[in-house]
Structures are given as C-alpha cells and as structure tokens.
Design a binder for these strands. Sequence first.
DNA 1: AGTGAATCTGGGAGCGCTTCCAATTGGGGC
DNA 2: GCCCCAATTGGAAGCGCTCCCAGATTCACT
Lengths: 338, 338
Amino acid sequence: MPQLTLDEIARLAGVSRTTASRVLNDRPHVRPELRERVLRVIEETNYRPNLLARSLAFQESRMIGLVVPQSVHAFFSDPYFPRLTQGIAEACNQYEYTLSLFLVQTFADESKLLPKITSRGFLDGLIVQVGQREDSLIGALAESGLPLVVAGRPSVTDKVSYIDVDNVHGAYTAVMHLLELGRRRVATITGGRHTAVGADRLRGYEQALAAMGLSVDPALIVEGDFTENSAYLGMQQLLPHHPDAVFAASDVMAVGALRAIQHSGLQVPRDIAVVGYDDLPPALLASPTLTTIRQPIRRFGIRAVELLLELIQKGTHPPRQVLMGTELVVRESCGFAA
Amino acid sequence: MPQLTLDEIARLAGVSRTTASRVLNDRPHVRPELRERVLRVIEETNYRPNLLARSLAFQESRMIGLVVPQSVHAFFSDPYFPRLTQGIAEACNQYEYTLSLFLVQTFADESKLLPKITSRGFLDGLIVQVGQREDSLIGALAESGLPLVVAGRPSVTDKVSYIDVDNVHGAYTAVMHLLELGRRRVATITGGRHTAVGADRLRGYEQALAAMGLSVDPALIVEGDFTENSAYLGMQQLLPHHPDAVFAASDVMAVGALRAIQHSGLQVPRDIAVVGYDDLPPALLASPTLTTIRQPIRRFGIRAVELLLELIQKGTHPPRQVLMGTELVVRESCGFAA
DNA sequence: AGTGAATCTGGGAGCGCTTCCAATTGGGGC
DNA sequence: GCCCCAATTGGAAGCGCTCCCAGATTCACT
C-alpha cells in the first residue's frame, strides 16, 4: 500500500491539500460538507499525520528532554528518580508533550548525547536533573540556548532557571518539631556537606537551634553520606555525647541511626527521638515508624514541566526559581503521642 | 543571529549545500581541502544539523518508544522498572537511538497517546512493557505496523515478538536446589495465578517436584499477590502442614514468609528453608540473607533493544521470541553451608 | 441585475535536510 | 596535444506538512 500522505487524503476526498490540512488541524474556513468528507476519508484510511513533517513545518517539536546525569547506582536504588519521572511524564501527557529520556552515565555518553540533545529543532526544552557531572553538563546545555529547567539546585544559581525543594525550611521544621517536644540536645547526621542538599539541611538544623536561642554544639554534628551504614557509624560517634534527639538528613540514614541506638540498648523515642527526611518506604517499614519530612516528588516533577513550558512560551529570561514546600509527617520515632 | 542552516554553512564555506551535506555525513566524493574548509566553518559557527529535517529526509527517526502501561504504584515501588529502563537507555545510547518514554496510566492517557505513538515516521520501533491493560494496548500498537517488542510475555504469544525471562526454569532451579539439599516438604507461595509470571513460576515448582518423582500436595501451595503481607498470611496457612522449605515467587514475599516463620518461633533455615525470586535489595537486607533467583534485568533491557533493532532492520516477520536465563544465587536462607 | 464584503479554496513556497543525476574538472595513457 | 574515464561538484527534486495569498464562490443588500 502506498504511504498515506496528506496529499493522498486530499486527492481521495477531492479537495486540495490545504483544505485537508485545515480539517486536520480543526481550523475554520472549510465548508461543513467538505470537512465531513475529509474526516470520513481520514477515518476510512486510518490516516495518521507524520509528526516529523508537522514539527518541521510548525517549527516546534512538542518534545522535551529529561537529562539524567548520574552514576548507575545512586540512581536506581533510590525511589526518588522513578517518582520524579512519573510526575514529569504525567505532566507531559497532560500538556501534550512527548518526553525523551537521556541517561548520561559516562563521559562517552555525554559527548555522544550532547550534540543530539542540543540539535536545533529536535527538542523544545529540557529538564536536567542535578547530579555529579552537573557543572560541565548544565553549562553546556544552557549554552545551547534551549529553554532549560534544572531539577534540584545547581551550583551556579543565578544564570539558570531551577526548581527545588526547600531543604532548609524542611530541615528547620523537622528540628523545630523536636525542640518543641522539649528535646534540648538535638544532634544531626548530615548528608555529604559538599552536596547542596546536605548543606541545606544542615543549615535548616542550625537555623532551628538559633531560633530557639540554642547554640550549636559541634560534637552533636557528624557527617554521613546518605547511606545507612554511614549513619550507623555516625550515630555511634554521637552516643557518648548523650543526645536526646537526632535529625538524620534522610530516611535511610535515620534507619541506620535507629539501629545503632537500639544496639546500644537505648530506646527510641524514649531515650532518643529520631526524625528522618524524604518519607520514602524505609520510613514506614522502620520500627518505630519514622517521623519525617515528606517531599512532594511527583508534584515536583509536574511543576518542573510547567515551569519549562512557561519558559518555552514566554522566553527564557529572566531565569526563574521555584521552591516547593515540604510537609512534616509525624509518626512514632519522635515521641509525640497524638 | 540567523537560524543556522546547512545552506548557510555551505554559503560560508563557498560550496554547495550538497557538498556540505556530504561532509556532514562523512561521505566520499569531497576533496580533502573542501572538506577541511566546511568542517572549519561548522566548528566556528557551532552548527548543529536539524535532526527533524534529517529524519524526514532519511525516512527514519532513530527514535524508539518505551511504552509502559501500568498503574502508578505497582510500578514505581518496584526497582524492576528503573533497572529495565536503564538497560534500555544504555542500549539506546550505544546504538545511537533516542528513547521516548510513554507512561500510560489511565484510559484517557491511552487514547491521547496512541495516535502520537503510532504516527508514521515519528518512531522507528516500540518496546512495550506488559502490564494490566496489556491486551487492548498491545493489540492496537501491533496493528500500527510499527516494529514492536514486548518486554515480558504477552497473553497472545504467537503474533508478536517478545522477550521474557525464563520463569519456569528459574523456579525449577530454585525448587530443585531445595530438593537437592534434602528438603522433601517444599511449599510455595505463588504470585497471582492469573499473571503470566505467577503461573510460570508455579509451573516450575511443579516440574521440579515431578522431576524428583514427588507428587504435588495442594496443601503446600498458597496463593499470594507479590506483596509482603500476602506472603505473611500465606505462610501462616502453610505452617500447620509442616513444610521444611518454602519457595516464594518473589523476594518481597520471601521476606513476608520469613517473618511469619520467625514469629512462630521456628528458625530459618534450620526448620524451614526459604528461597525467593528476583534478587532485588530485600534479598540482601533480609536476615538471614535470601537465596534467590537473579534476573538479568539490565541485560534484559539491552537485549530488548537489540531485538527491536533487528526487527527494524530485517523486517518484523516472522515474530521472534527470546527467553533469557536466570541464575541461582545461594545465600543463607536455604541452609546450604558453602 | 450589480456591487461589495465575507467566506472558501487551492497553488505554491517554505521548513532543513538528503540524494539523484547531469555537468564539470582533472589526470593518465596514447 | 588529445581523448576518455573516474572523481568531484552542484542544481533540483523530494521527504510530508503548514500557511500566505490570490482567485473563486457565495450571499446580502442596494
């Protein structure tokens, strides 16, 4: 069978290609009768317009790219990415955009993918997840002139639009909750301090203490790296300093802390209260269940898309920044009886 | 600045568009000197060809779609999908294809996305993950004539190419391992029997018993639904029948069984040996660590892409089927001292 | 019946690229 | 010095669609 083109449809319906195109795009200036006829032919032949040709003519592809620079592991062991992707995909469906996925794992990937991603006309916009190779990559992508939204906070914040979760305030809320429950020796196990997330959550911790007029005791701060094990070891360091509460920068780490506390013979929350961050599955599986800070990951993805579409429509300058709020989820580990 | 086109490049280099195109695509019949000149202009102007236009002219887009029909939850709580996606994305990078992601969650999504996915020229091929709305969707997609690979076993197996993990043999291996260790009352907790996966693993269980000349005791078979809780309850039903081993159709369910056994005061593996399936994180986190069947998920994704590319090149008939092997991973829960 | 406006219609150019094919060039062999 | 063939070059058509614009048609109103 012959490739079905709009020309062919027009011929079958006995009209011009232009008219057929008008019908296809639901535009005015076509007699109802003709419109009807064209629609019937389309129906009968099961015709589908060629999106590529259409995009080329329209000068917009209605495709956006999701770029994920990340090492294999950090990424897929964490439920974060799937959730985010889901939100993004959902929003794409809603706004009639198509999503292209670019996983950039190695340097080779990067040099291979970059020209493709930045090829003019191919993508209308880009969402880039912050990661390790962040800087070089975001820089290169920004340079391409494509509308760009960074998901997470990039190291250079002023040139580029980004959307992030308000980690400072989230941590502040978590710690403040502990303080309001009467805890006074609140320790923290940080994420890597060199990561933006880790640093922000530490800042929130400090601000909460300051707000209550308490001074920061360096002995009550240990550094973890978002793994359970690092938190287990960190908690062992903290125990000799007799904290009565711990704020861990992630649920996974909170679980590690929990284990260390319980192994030492102390009880949670009686002796030491624990608060985590993320509200991912570990929070509910832990025993006692974790009080934690919930991040609106899925909505975060949706907002990222909406922000990007805004940039596409209204131009990319000035860069926009969006901070999303968090939510304190109170469970057992903080010792608050509801 | 003017949109940079190949025409412009040609003009700047003082050659024709045709010659410029030849240089761009690394084709012969260009004097080295001219080639050099064109390359320099491209370099200087940082020109990127328009992929859309190129695809239109080439009559191939070098894009493939990954269609995921699935309810939100089953999907993203399971590490399976991220791994699979990773494998697919990796292979796409390697073979210079671009990956488009289509998450089909609702009926509305389906009717909205279908025309886009099947639009001629837009995608060169399609990988469809089996899911719940499987039948209608796979049918519709197959009808479009696009090269198609189903990841997982579809309900209609003969018309369509698919790639699957050999669940029957995997389960067979797991149960056989228990039998070889001397266990004789081997129970099983199945996945949903109406799912292909669940049914296959049950079949493997039965085949292993048969191979050892043992009969199947219906009292030793209970049905779960791949959740931890269903397995916990299932195990409680099994205990009165004194099994000395359990094959659970997933690691998550094995963990549920483990908990039920331990709560009843029995010990694993001394009293009851346990084997799971998947080799996902729960297997290692459980205590004792789980003997299980490892699925090559990432490689599975890679093979899916390779199969698809084969279909794209050599035509989609006849449908091809690929079954991938599994691997028995022996840990503590089966009672085998290494 | 005649005029103008309002509405329809379709020819043709254009989106940025590839590629067929005819034209041009260069060089070796006589 | 001339001819022929191979290597190189570029003009033009084509991929399938949109959209500008001019021409055709309709219709109301004088």
